[in-house]
Simulated scan of single mutants.
Amino acid sequence: MTSPLISATELRGRLAEVTVLDVRYRTGGPAGLEEYAAGHVPGAAYVDLDRDLAAPPGHPDGRGGRHPLPEPDVFGAAMRRAGVAAGRPVVAYDDWGGQAAARGWWLLRHHGHGDVRVLDGGWRAWREAGGEVETGPVETAEGDFEPGPGSMPVVEAGGVLDVPALVDARAPERYRGEREPIDPVAGHIPGALNVPTGTNLAVDGRFRDPAQLRALYEAAGVPLDGTEVAVYCGSGVTAVHDLLALELVGVRAALYAGSWSDWISDPDRPVSRG
């Protein structure tokens, strides 16, 4: 299995042969275009997560969640604008521990691109490795990527409670229902196990090695023996960080894309706290 990660050192040596996507973003914060303009990996195209990697929330009651998956044709057009081509490797990065870049990685994989990786350590690692910095916009040649039907495993709200191992990727206090700064209802889906995305990373901001990740997930009660696993978060963005971590230990887990913001849109669905 090809690793879903690439080091800054390797990327420096391969810049001429890859398409780089800058996916800087923060939940609840402004888009990262200003940071991109101030400095980015040479040749990188900026990708707006809200516009390019998600559909607008379509229902006032929250059905579908805050970051629904984009329609394939909309996503494909955005990727072509960013220069993505079917036969050319893609590397995505951010300055948020890989949480936004992983969304781009997953969507491209989901729609059939066979060579997509996330820059391990992101923008910080690039700078620490002595990577060159380019400023201002980049004129990108149109790519030829055409999205295929979704191929990565997903689970919908109706099947979530039937998943043998469900992982909640949010911070522990949100999982326990002690604090909910974003969504109108606090708590978690009954039976979910908590593996916060931040625990996937070492102190240097890079992903832990596979042995450490395996121990982390097993300690949380997540079976890594072929049992079906699904992951959710608040809106389906940061959950993909756990999907990437699980991929590093050889587990292809499913995404509940609507996540907590979709789950609580139906008041009849059960909620657990603690």
Rank of each mutant, 00 (worst) to 15 (best):
Y93K: 01
V74A: 15
R81M: 10
A101Y: 05
V84L: 08
D144V: 11
W106I: 04
P89A: 15
G136L: 07
A82S: 13
F75L: 15
D95Y: 13
F145P: 01
G143L: 12
F75H: 05
H113N: 08
A85G: 15
H111P: 02
A101P: 02
A141D: 10
E134L: 13
G136D: 04
E132H: 12
G122Q: 03
G136I: 04
A129S: 11
D115E: 15
E142G: 04
E142D: 08
P137D: 13
L107R: 01
H113R: 06
D73N: 00
E128D: 12
L119V: 09
G131F: 03
V118C: 13
A92F: 06
W123V: 14
D144N: 15
D144I: 14
A141Y: 03
L119R: 01
G130M: 07
V116K: 01
R117F: 08
G143Y: 08
G83W: 05
T140P: 01
G104T: 12
M79K: 04
Y93P: 04
G87M: 11
A77V: 04
D144Y: 10
G104W: 06
G114E: 10
V84D: 01
G131A: 14
Q99M: 15
A77W: 00
H113V: 07
L107H: 05
G112P: 01
G131T: 09
G87C: 11
G104K: 00
G143N: 11
H111F: 14
T135D: 02
T135Y: 07
G112F: 05
G143F: 11
L107Q: 00
P89F: 15
R124A: 15
R127I: 11
R81G: 07
V84T: 03
R124W: 08
